[in-house]
Design a protein around this nucleic acid. Structure first.
Length: 579
RNA sequence: GGUCCGGUAGUUCAGUUUGGUUAGAAUGCAUGCCUGUCACGCAUGAGGUCGCGGGUUCGAGCCCCGUCCGGACCGCCA
């Protein structure tokens, strides 16, 4: 061992002991004749010093050190004459007797500080330096503890962690697959799993009863701050269960994780149906950290002679409470934002109470008394602003949902460090794909419909609800799952509704349909995005900050410069030609 | 596939509105001074392909076109 202690553990009761430490030169403070260095490793920082009067030669060697040099020192623990209460090791320092440079370092391109001056591009390119920063290091430690807690909790509950293959078969539904050419089978390709969905179901068929896996998943789709091409799932499946069993167990797990890792007691998770979530929050992953439900104004505002409202399928509003500074300029800006093609609204009306007088963009069409009564009916007070969106029902709800988040951000309605979990249940079984004129699964094709809605598969599939559920926290979808289909005829019926012919179903899922013939138990499960859980728990906006070596938003690894071309020989071996 | 924002010193940015002398700041770096610092302090200094290519102009960091790179979002992500 090169060291007797790490850089985070020495305290006042270690006084006068001989110690040997290794670490990186974090800060150098040369006062002339006296030189201090903060020596850093994963565990902390310890101050070492060199005194020119007592040890002139050592002092001269220390003068040659630079930032991020790796050094080994042997010395004695001394009490500081000036203590630093901000550091855990701030009562002591090391009087160095021996200094050895283990490695030199170039000047790092950005500072290794919590509040670094490095751009994200630099941080990704020099990720090994970025990970030296406390915040990144602590995130990695947190993530390790999370994984460990998950394993402990689920193992305790009888789950087995079973590995599933990465080289599998491409499936037609869902995200675009990453494909891997097979050298031994010319013209044939593996696909990397978008998730181990069918494999975990097959493990249930195999009688494993309770399975989980912390596993990488791959989806070849475009990126976002919360989406990477490879990401980590906590994948779970259970046999002989109903929806309640899964919701209760994984709600318990989440509570366990928050208690263990953050010392926070989560409340009971409210359960909202998809319909309620959409009608109240305009989103299937509502952020409950702030109030401001959508108010349905269709009945109140329609048929009063204002054409735009009268011709609308739906009118909804949001009440922004007690914001005296909402200016005309701000409202114009919000209107512009709503009309932005990415939001897709056609306009934004408002009614405001200032000094208990009505200020509104629709005074030409509605009397002052009417608007006063409208505000009274929704319990609005002075300095409250009602924003109104009208038009197609679903589109308007979506816009209101976006506007709700936009207002919360703009007026800082979201408290820091609070967690608002919920379940969203009763999703529609299918979404209608306008482009291809067919149904797609809103969850996935193996999701069971609600028992009560099975008949709707024949009579009106678009109304059928599935036995699927999402766990949502702070406006992020942390996980989702469903009770699966274990009956072959039902599975075939669903395939048919998804426009898969018998032949296609057989080609793609034949192995799975066959397995359903051999005593498949009722089962269901759920999968969580580990990256998102870590990001939400730590209050981070981007999952790139919780992944050791993430890709940028073009799918490139800026550090190793992947993807990259391969040699002609490699292509030939794989029977591939580049167009 | 699309919309928007950005690219200027090692790094983070200002300068672009209204084209005009030698392109600035902070930090980092180098050198010197300094015995109790902990974001040490003070002084001096070095450091620039204004992403790249083309155009307009007497003159372009600034205007126009193209392109590359980075970021946010829409589509997409069962």
């Amino acid at each position: 061992m090169l060291r007797s202690n790490n850089c985070g553990e020495l305290r006042i009761n270690d006084l006068n002991s001989q110690v040997s430490l290794c670490g990186w030169v974090h800060h150098i403070r040369d006062l002339g004749k006296l030189l201090f260095i903060d020596l850093r490793d994963r565990y902390g920082t310890t101050q070492i010093y060199f005194d020119a009067n007592n040890k002139p030669e050592l002092y001269q060697s220390a003068k040659k050190l630079g930032r991020e040099y790796v050094i080994h020192v042997i010395g004695t623990v001394r009490e500081r004459s000036n203590k630093n209460p901000k550091m855990p090791t701030g009562d002591i320092e090391i009087d160095v007797d021996t200094l050895k440079v283990l490695n030199t370092s170039e000047i790092p391109p950005f500072t290794i500080e919590d509040d670094t001056d490095g751009s994200e591009e630099m941080r990704l390119q020099y990720r090994y330096l970025d990970l030296r920063r406390n915040v990144m290091k602590d995130t990695m430690i947190f993530r390790h503890k999370l994984n460990l807690s998950i394993r402990n909790f689920l193992s305790e509950k009888g789950f087995l962690e079973i590995e599933t293959p990465f080289l599998i078969k491409s499936t037609p539904e869902g995200a675009r697959d990453f494909i891997v050419p097979s050298r031994l089978n010319p013209g044939n390709f593996y696909a990397l799993p978008q998730s181990p969905q069918l494999l975990k179901q097959l493990l249930m068929f195999a009688g494993m009863d309770r399975y989980f896996q912390i596993v990488r998943c791959f989806r070849d789709e475009d990126f976002r701050a919360d989406r990477q091409p490879e990401f980590t799932q906590l994948d779970c499946e259970m046999s002989f269960v109903e929806q309640d069993d899964i919701l209760n167990l994984f709600e318990d797990m989440m509570r366990y994780l928050f208690r263990n890792l953050l010392d926070i007691d989560l409340p009971i998770f409210p359960r909202l149906t998809y319909k309620e979530a959409m009608e109240t929050f305009g989103s299937d992953k509502p952020d409950l950290r702030f109030d401001m439900p959508i108010i349905n104004l269709s009945d109140t505002l329609k048929g009063k002679g204002f054409k735009i409202f009268d011709n609308s399928e739906y009118i909804g509003g949001l009440l922004l409470i007690n914001q005296p500074d909402v200016s005309r300029k701000q409202i114009d800006k919000l209107t512009e934002w709503v009309k932005n093609p990415q939001v897709g609204g056609s306009g934004l009306a408002y009614v405001r109470l200032v000094d208990n007088e009505i200020k509104s963009s629709i005074t030409q069409f509605f009397s002052n008394d009417f608007l006063q009564n409208l505000m009274k009916s929704i319990n609005a007070s002075n300095n409250d602003t009602l924003f109104i969106i009208s038009g197609n029902r679903n589109k308007s709800l979506e816009i209101l949902g976006n506007l709700r988040l936009h207002l919360a951000k703009q007026y800082q309605l979201i408290q820091k460090n609070i967690y608002k979990p919920l379940w969203v249940i009763d999703f529609p079984m299918f979404d209608w794909d306008e482009e291809n004129h067919r149904f797609t699964s809103s969850h996935h094709p193996f999701t069971s419909p609600l028992l009560s809605d099975i008949e709707l598969l024949d009579s009106n599939p678009s109304l059928a609800r599935s036995n699927a559920y999402d766990m949502v926290m702070n406006g992020a979808e942390l996980g989702g799952g469903s009770i699966r289909i274990h009956d072959k005829f039902l599975q075939k019926k669903v395939f048919k509704l998804l426009n898969l012919t018998d032949q296609e179903a057989e080609d793609k899922f034949g192995f799975f349909l066959k397995a359903l013939d051999y005593g498949a138990p009722p089962h269901g499960g759920i999968a969580f995005g580990i990256d998102r859980i870590v990001a939400v728990m730590l209050g981070l906006n981007s999952i790139r900050d919780v992944i050791a070596f993430p890709k940028n938003n073009m799918g490139r690894d800026l550090m190793m410069q992947a993807p990259a071309p391969v040699t002609a020989d490699q292509l030939k071996e794989l029977h591939l030609k580049i167009q």
